[in-house]
Design a protein around this nucleic acid. Sequence first.
DNA 1: GTCTTGCCTGGAGCGCACTCCAATTCCCTA
DNA 2: TAGGGAATTGGAGTGCGCTCCAGGCAAGAC
Lengths: 157, 157
Amino acid sequence: MTVTETETTAAGTGTRPLCAAPPRHPRPDGEDRYTISEVADLTGLSAHTLRWYERIGLLQHVDRSHTGQRRFSNRDLDWLELVGKLRLTGMPVADMVRYAELVRAGEHTYEQRQRLLRATRENVLSRIAELEETVAVLDHKIDYYADARRASDRGPA
Amino acid sequence: MTVTETETTAAGTGTRPLCAAPPRHPRPDGEDRYTISEVADLTGLSAHTLRWYERIGLLQHVDRSHTGQRRFSNRDLDWLELVGKLRLTGMPVADMVRYAELVRAGEHTYEQRQRLLRATRENVLSRIAELEETVAVLDHKIDYYADARRASDRGPA
DNA sequence: GTCTTGCCTGGAGCGCACTCCAATTCCCTA
DNA sequence: TAGGGAATTGGAGTGCGCTCCAGGCAAGAC
């Protein structure tokens, strides 16, 4: 299901000069100062949630304009993308905050970060396994209903 | 962690005569009157949660002893197993209640039930796809940290 | 008999992840 | 320079899925 992905990202998402990788971000580095509502649109998170993320430390202190309004960077966008992925693994926000703290703490936390990611990876794999089991159960039931309906279409015995 | 699962369920979870499928339930039909705490142990749900499930209609009215205590049946156990599976797909309890209502409503809801299950199946598949994407991202990061650590083990350039 | 254990009920409380509010300030366009 | 939409803040509120509590009944062990 994720099979087509590499191709899709590599090729033809639109009309773009050959060999130019699609830009990772809507604006190039150096001009990357997004308002909160832009980021809300880009990430699907609400502005409220973005502020809240910053308050709880899930988002590094976001840069501000001279009047105090948030200006998000491409790095913030990358981070939010990762957060988004982790979020849909069901990782609690508190754990993500812990990871964010490690990132902020500097390079000497590489080992801890790696361990955390490895553990998460294992969790995700077992969730996938559970979900696959669930699909099997669903298929089983769907088939059951299909049979039952076929039988009753021909009229009860 | 759950990696060995398929094998484990297929073979040798214990010492059982060849060719005898492991019993689907701890007690044979006809003797299936489990107390709430037995069911709690079997399902991993708390007694509170079981009572709550019944109250909100996620569990059909459970049979009672002459003194009013709940006595769960093998069917209840089966249903709870399905509920458990659906729960870890992230399906909201309210949706499961709706399905339960269809089941209670009788055979003429087969089609609706099937539709509901099919929709759920699709959801689960896309969740699996998302999780696989996430694993890819995690792998990517884990590799990154591995490289970085190897580099710094040899001392910074 | 009384003690302990397990179960019953309705209703309150909790933790998580947002989500919204009110009052105020800022930015942009005309 | 006026007006309207977008941003700021701290703090309160919401919805979900439990989770716990108080007060009480029933049955087996001593």
